[in-house]
Every structure is written in C-alpha cells, then in structure tokens.
Design a protein around this nucleic acid. Sequence first.
DNA 1: ACACTCACATACCTTCGGTATGTATGTTTC
DNA 2: GAAACATACATACCGAAGGTATGTGAGTGT
Lengths: 213, 213
Amino acid sequence: MATAHTAAEGVGRQPRVRPTQRERSDATVEDLLTAARALFASAGYAATSLDAVCERAGVTKGALYHHFAGKKQLFSAVYTREQERLAARITGAYRAAAADPWQAVFEGCRAYLEASLDPEVQRITLFDAPGALGWEAMRDLGVNCRELTQKGIARAIRKGAIPDRPADPLTSMLYGGLSESAMAVVRAPDPQAALDEVLTDLRRLFDALAAGS
Amino acid sequence: MATAHTAAEGVGRQPRVRPTQRERSDATVEDLLTAARALFASAGYAATSLDAVCERAGVTKGALYHHFAGKKQLFSAVYTREQERLAARITGAYRAAAADPWQAVFEGCRAYLEASLDPEVQRITLFDAPGALGWEAMRDLGVNCRELTQKGIARAIRKGAIPDRPADPLTSMLYGGLSESAMAVVRAPDPQAALDEVLTDLRRLFDALAAGS
DNA sequence: ACACTCACATACCTTCGGTATGTATGTTTC
DNA sequence: GAAACATACATACCGAAGGTATGTGAGTGT
C-alpha cells in the first residue's frame, strides 16, 4: 500500500521535507490527470472506474473529489488537455505555412489528422467526448480544434485564397470529415496506405475548393 | 402496477384471449424498443436506466434480459432501427435523382443531413453510438448510412460524373462532415439559416468536386 | 502559538447493470 | 388429451461504481 507522498516523490520531483500546499495540490492533480488519461484512453470513459484512477494515481477518492466535481469533470479536464496538445500541433503546422493562407489550413488539417491517428487520442476526443460531455460542453471548453479550423478558413477567405463564402459550413465539413477519416484510417487493413489516400484526396479537395467560383 | 399484458393490449393490438408466444414476444420487444428509444433519445445512453426502460415498457428486467443480452445490445437494436430509418430516407432521395449519379449523391446527403437535425436521432446516432458501440460495431451493424454514401460515390465515379479517385477518402469526408454539420446546425442561433448556408455550401462543394481534375 | 484553512483519508450510501431462480403460459408429442 | 417440454416472463438478489459525509493531520495567516 502506497502512502500519499509516494506518487509525488516517485516521478522525480525533488522530495521536499515540507512541501507547500500548492505543490501538493499541483502534484496530486497532475497524478490524477495522468492516471485518468491513461485509463480513459485504454479502457474508455464508461469502463474506467474512479477507484481505478485513484489507485493508479496513488490517492483516494477523497483527493479526487477535492480537486474535481466528479467523473465528468475529471474527463473534461483530460479532454481539455488533449485538445490543447492537438491545438499546439495544429498551430505549429499552420504557422510554418502561414505565408500561403490556404496551404496553411491544409497543413493544419494534416497535423490534426495525423495526431488523431493515435488510438488514445481518438478514444478520448472522438469516441467518448461527445457522449460524455455533449456538443456544447465540447465547444465551450477552452481552445478547441474546431475553432482553429474556423479561424484558418476565415483567414483564407479574407486573404482571397479561396472564393468568398461563409466559413462555418466549410469548417464543419472539414473538421467532421477529418475526424471521421482518422477513425477510418486506423481501422483500415493498411493504415499507412489509407492515410496516403486520404491526404492525396484532401489535397485534391483543397485544390478544387481554391479553384471553385 | 401494470400487469404484463397491459402494455401489449394498450397499443391497440387486438386483445386476443390466448395470444401465441410469437405474438407476445414481438409485442414485448416492440414495447421495449419503443420505450428504450424514447429514453435513450431524451436522456442519453448513460443516464438511461434499464429499470426506467422496463417501467415505461410495462415489463420487468426478466423480460428485457430474455430478449436482449444487456444494455449495450438493447441500445444496439435501437441504433440499428434508427440507421434503417435513416437509410430508407436516404435511399428514397437518392433513387428519385438517380438519373444524375452525382446529383443523386447530393440529394442523399441532403436527406441524411435533414434527418439528422432531429435532436433524438442526433443523440442516438451521433453522440452516444460511438462511445457505446465503438466504430467497428457501428460499421458492422447491418445497413448503415456510411455504406450508402460510399456506394453512391463509387457509382458516381464509375459513371464518370466526377473525376476518377478512390471512393473511401471522400466517403469519410462527406459522411463525417455532414454529421458534424448536423450537430452545428441544430445548435446555431438560427438553425434554419444555418441549414440553408450548409446546403448552399454543400452545393458549391459538389460542383467543385465535379469540376476538379 | 493560536486559530484556521487546506488537502486529503475513511466509511458509507445509493443506484444500476447483471444474474439466478421461480412460475405461468403456450407448444409439442405420444 | 394429457404428460413432457419449451417459452416468456416476474421476483429477489448481488456486486460494482459514482457520489457524499465526516474525520484528521499537515501547512498557513495573525
């Protein structure tokens, strides 16, 4: 049986003799989020028990409920982190090609797609999040990838890289399409070949959109 | 407290003095599916208890577990029915425009999109199904709308209505995009206007795809 | 150094999915 | 047509899991 401090000290954090309360909190939250993300990603939201999360994190449910309002909130925090990581990758790819606004969107889409191929990311963001959080909660949860897509498209339109149009419909089609594509690619007999096909087709789609009136 | 026969007789079925076993079974399954679909649609999969389903159906859990292996199977049956209803609407719209293979796909997409605006359909097929059933189970569950989309696109390619390309990537983009669009449209400040925008943009997308090389 | 808050641990409650068993009602067989 | 059997449930119960109430010891402000 592990004590409350074992987890915090075990991760390489310097074992302070008298850790401040803020440090304890942060470490505990970190442990909980790490444990929760691992279990949510492998077993899924419903099949993950809070007891298992607590055991893995080396704390009890008292600690969990002190920092999170409940299972949904815990998952929400994990989901938010996942979105932030995805957003960082997308933004990085986008910025690297920002000179060409439409090409930048393409690179952002490629980054989102490739990142979403990770089964763990997929389980959290694509399978469990809608049912567990609901669409509105997902939308209003800090930075999300859909918003990035929308901004990228809006910029491409403003810059005249693609014909003028409202940004929202295309945002939904792109974002939803890429999400579904990620799920299909991973389950394909030859995922690598499927990914190549998807990217090739996405390229043609982008060209067609740029050429359209 | 209702007796076991109340539900079956209450729906207008002619109250036979000695109903055959097949009739009893069918009536019970029907009652269970109707009750389950109502609760799953309004409260969601996780928040729906089997006790509530049984109470609404006028039977007990013994009956439920006699006809279904468990909660997941019950939801699966409800989901399958929903997909069949959607597929029927899509096929109807598609056939009506089948003379033009690409236009037929457009009409099928429009039908899928409009049918998916129903919050109850959305809750079952778009929010809860992925998490509760998993992607593979959804795919292998009889007739599904994604498969219809794929066939329509493949036909349009064979007929030369759009430039030659693999059908799968475009299928994912279209199907996923429409699903996401349906969710966005319903939550828009002005859903009707949002739907019009989406359909207009979809039209442009189809034209661009047909024109592309 | 004293009161006070924070960060948990412990114990318990309730709900709910699932199962084991009992029973009445068709259904088949001789 | 009556025994033998299968079907279609109802009833009672179990265990897991989300959530809560309460206790406690370690930091923290005054």
